[in-house]
Design a protein around this nucleic acid. Structure first.
Lengths: 256, 256
DNA sequence: CGAGATGTTGACTTACTTCAATCGAGGTGG
DNA sequence: CCACCTCGATTGAAGTAAGTCAACATCTCG
């Protein structure tokens, strides 16, 4: 089920892999810099950050970057690919707590307790930057901008989860799916993709788990939204036809 | 509806209020220190923290410590009393995101965005320590232990919300209430109260909002648990009769 | 091409909501 | 002191959204 779980080769910075991707690891020249890192760093500070991000790691589709209970040592910044984070509760049950894309951080819930609090599974072949947390902390004590950035990233995750709680606590199936699609589209758009056309990387079951719905209910909600002319769906391809109408659903849910 | 919303008098450290509570503000001599602050600080560092916590603030039952949209300037550590945090979504709807008690921090979701992301409402007369976040940050850059502590507090909140998402996403009413009661009892017990006997500070409606249930459903769940002999309920007084059985409900929910 | 995974749809069941009536505790004023 | 009121909690009956079970369609990949 999980072909390449743990022993994934680390790509050291001073010995880049051969081939097309043999680029030196450097945040200073990374196109995602504005997403992961604070803006307005001096060259000196930027150079220092380059020394914190020591390695990259590739994760194949279906493989885990880390698992619940693994020793926490690093945060990971996604360079390419798409992840889900999920909790495995006792009894074989499983709950998706989020989906993450390029430029977003993984592992924040591991800081307390020294071990990862969830699984991070790649939904497509992915590559991440490894950021040893001790070094990140050392550096954050020297550079206020980085410290502030770290605090904001943590706080943003708290706010994001508030939104999910709102969704789980008081929206009906179609509204949840609408919120999910708008959120995804907005994040993809911030990365230069279409605001209205998206390809889902996850199954109906994974979406359902995230939204607190069964897969059948999720599927029905997609169909209903399509029937109402708000979206166009064919399997994992979704086109948002009436973003304002979807937004209205999210802003004015029918109860609570 | 809200007798003392905004203009609550600040109690400066160098001019303590007259009367029984005329104690110098000092984390170093605070009984809740182990809950709010990292352990193992030197006297010097402890003294420095005392200079960060510059003021206390009293909030009457029903009053707000801060409101969604207020400018974020400080974190607050609860000294006495009990709070709820709630999001007011457009349309007059309202959702409780958490309940906080002595020794816990309020305002973490305000760090990103420079403004508070929720309302913090006192469920009983309360007093908090005001910790200006800029100063806290300055100090965290000097003392690694404080920095680590801050990171852990933020991370812990993320983990806590994961638990709530699990609850909202996949448990039935009775299981949610069981989880809620056990969590409350555990936190109260860590503060020296009984592990089995508790007085709820919040209404059925507020509990329901937190758990994603209507107040009637919440009430029914309480009654059912009582009927099954797991708890004893009289209004807001709850006695936990079979903690293990409750724990089993939480560990082995019937679906998802 | 065929097998297995993934997605859709229908019929039925269930858990929660909704609406409404009742009860009891706490507070106020005659 | 008690009648009265209000608010929160409880309980019942009816309605509904989502879950469950199952059949079928469609895509993917060896």
């Amino acid at each position: 089920m999980d072909p390449d779980a743990k022993p994934i080769p680390i790509q050291p910075v001073d010995r880049p892999a051969a081939g097309v991707d043999a680029i030196r690891i450097a945040c200073s020249s990374c196109s995602l810099r504005d997403l992961c890192m604070p803006v307005g760093l001096t060259d000196e500070e930027m150079h220092r950050i380059d020394s914190v991000v020591t390695a990259r790691r590739k994760v194949k589709r279906g493989g885990s970057l880390f698992r619940q209970g693994d020793r926490f040592e690093s945060l990971y910044a996604i360079r390419t690919g798409f992840f889900k984070t999920c909790l495995s509760a006792p009894g074989g049950r499983n709950h998706v707590t989020g989906f993450q894309m390029a430029g977003e951080l993984l592992g924040l819930d591991g800081i307390v307790g020294e071990q990862h609090g969830c699984d991070a599974v790649a939904l497509e072949d992915a590559e991440v930057c490894v950021m040893p947390f001790d070094q990140l902390g050392d550096f954050a004590r020297e550079v206020e901008a980085l410290q502030r950035h770290l605090h904001r990233v943590l706080s943003r995750e708290i706010v994001r989860e508030h939104g999910v709680m709102l969704l789980l606590g008081g929206m009906r199936a179609e509204e949840r799916v609408a919120a999910f699609l708008l959120n995804l589209a907005q994040r993809l758009h911030a990365r230069g993709f279409s605001r209205t056309e998206l390809v889902l990387r996850m199954s109906r079951e994974e979406i359902g788990s995230y939204l607190g719905l069964k897969l059948e209910t999720t599927s029905r909600a997609f169909s209903k939204l399509a029937e109402e002319g708000l979206i166009e769906v064919r399997l994992r391809h979704v086109r948002i036809l009436q973003p304002e109408a979807l937004q209205r659903m999210v802003d004015h849910p029918s109860w609570r």
